[in-house]
Simulated assay, not measured.
Amino acid sequence: MKLALAQLGVEATDLDGNLDRALAAIDAATARDADLLALPELWNVGYFSFDAYPRAAESITGSTLSELSDAAAERGLALLAGSIVEDLAASADAGVDVPEPEGLANTAVLFDADGERRAVYRKHHLFGYESAETRLLTPGEALPVVDMFGFGIGAITCYDLRFPEQFRALTDAGATLVLVPSAWPYPRVEHWETLPRARAVENLAYVATVNGAGAFEDAELLGRSTVYDPWGTTIASTDDEPALVTAEIDPGRVERVREEFPALRDRRDY
Rank of each mutant, 00 (worst) to 15 (best):
residue 73 A to R: 12
residue 73 A to N: 06
residue 77 L to G: 02
residue 78 A to W: 02
residue 79 L to H: 07
residue 79 L to F: 07
residue 80 L to Q: 13
residue 82 G to V: 02
residue 83 S to H: 07
residue 85 V to Q: 10
residue 86 E to N: 10
residue 87 D to G: 06
residue 87 D to L: 01
residue 90 A to E: 14
residue 92 A to R: 15
residue 94 A to E: 15
residue 94 A to Q: 09
residue 95 G to D: 08
residue 96 V to S: 14
residue 97 D to V: 11
residue 97 D to F: 03
residue 97 D to I: 08
residue 98 V to Y: 11
residue 98 V to Q: 13
residue 99 P to D: 11
residue 99 P to N: 10
residue 101 P to Q: 03
residue 101 P to I: 01
residue 101 P to L: 02
residue 105 A to H: 01
residue 106 N to S: 12
residue 106 N to L: 12
residue 106 N to P: 00
residue 107 T to A: 13
residue 111 F to R: 10
residue 112 D to Q: 08
residue 113 A to L: 07
residue 114 D to G: 15
residue 114 D to Q: 14
residue 115 G to I: 05
residue 115 G to M: 08
residue 115 G to E: 11
residue 117 R to D: 06
residue 118 R to S: 04
residue 118 R to D: 00
residue 119 A to T: 00
residue 120 V to R: 12
residue 120 V to Q: 09
residue 120 V to P: 06
residue 122 R to L: 00
residue 124 H to Y: 04
residue 125 H to E: 10
residue 125 H to T: 08
residue 126 L to H: 04
residue 127 F to K: 03
residue 128 G to F: 08
residue 128 G to V: 05
residue 131 S to H: 00
residue 133 E to L: 03
residue 133 E to Q: 11
residue 133 E to A: 14
residue 133 E to T: 07
residue 134 T to W: 00
residue 135 R to W: 01
residue 136 L to G: 00
residue 136 L to S: 14
residue 136 L to R: 13
residue 136 L to M: 14
residue 136 L to H: 09
residue 137 L to D: 00
residue 139 P to M: 09
residue 140 G to C: 05
residue 141 E to M: 02
residue 143 L to V: 02
residue 143 L to N: 04
residue 144 P to R: 07
residue 145 V to E: 13
residue 145 V to Y: 05
residue 145 V to M: 10
residue 146 V to T: 15
residue 147 D to M: 02
residue 147 D to I: 04
residue 150 G to A: 09
residue 152 G to V: 08
residue 154 G to A: 15
residue 154 G to P: 00
residue 154 G to M: 05
residue 154 G to Y: 01
residue 155 A to C: 11
residue 157 T to Q: 13
residue 157 T to C: 12
residue 158 C to K: 05
residue 158 C to R: 02
residue 160 D to N: 02
residue 160 D to V: 03
residue 163 F to T: 10
residue 163 F to M: 04
residue 164 P to K: 03
residue 165 E to A: 15
residue 166 Q to H: 07
residue 170 L to I: 05
residue 170 L to T: 07
residue 171 T to Y: 06
residue 171 T to I: 00
residue 171 T to A: 14
residue 172 D to S: 12
residue 174 G to A: 10
residue 174 G to S: 12
residue 176 T to P: 01
residue 177 L to Y: 11
residue 177 L to M: 12
residue 178 V to G: 07
residue 178 V to H: 02
residue 179 L to R: 07
residue 180 V to Q: 09
residue 181 P to S: 10
residue 181 P to E: 08
residue 182 S to L: 00
residue 184 W to Q: 03
residue 184 W to D: 03
residue 185 P to S: 13
residue 186 Y to W: 11
residue 187 P to A: 15
residue 189 V to R: 09
residue 190 E to N: 11
residue 192 W to A: 15
residue 193 E to K: 11
residue 194 T to G: 01
residue 195 L to H: 09
residue 195 L to E: 15
residue 196 P to G: 04
residue 196 P to S: 06
residue 198 A to R: 13
residue 198 A to H: 08
residue 201 V to I: 15
residue 201 V to K: 10
residue 202 E to M: 11
residue 204 L to T: 12
residue 205 A to F: 03
residue 205 A to Q: 10
residue 206 Y to M: 04
residue 207 V to D: 04
residue 207 V to P: 00
residue 208 A to W: 01
residue 209 T to S: 14
residue 210 V to Q: 08
residue 212 G to S: 12
residue 212 G to D: 01
residue 212 G to I: 04
residue 213 A to P: 05
residue 217 E to K: 11
residue 218 D to P: 00
residue 218 D to V: 06
residue 219 A to N: 11
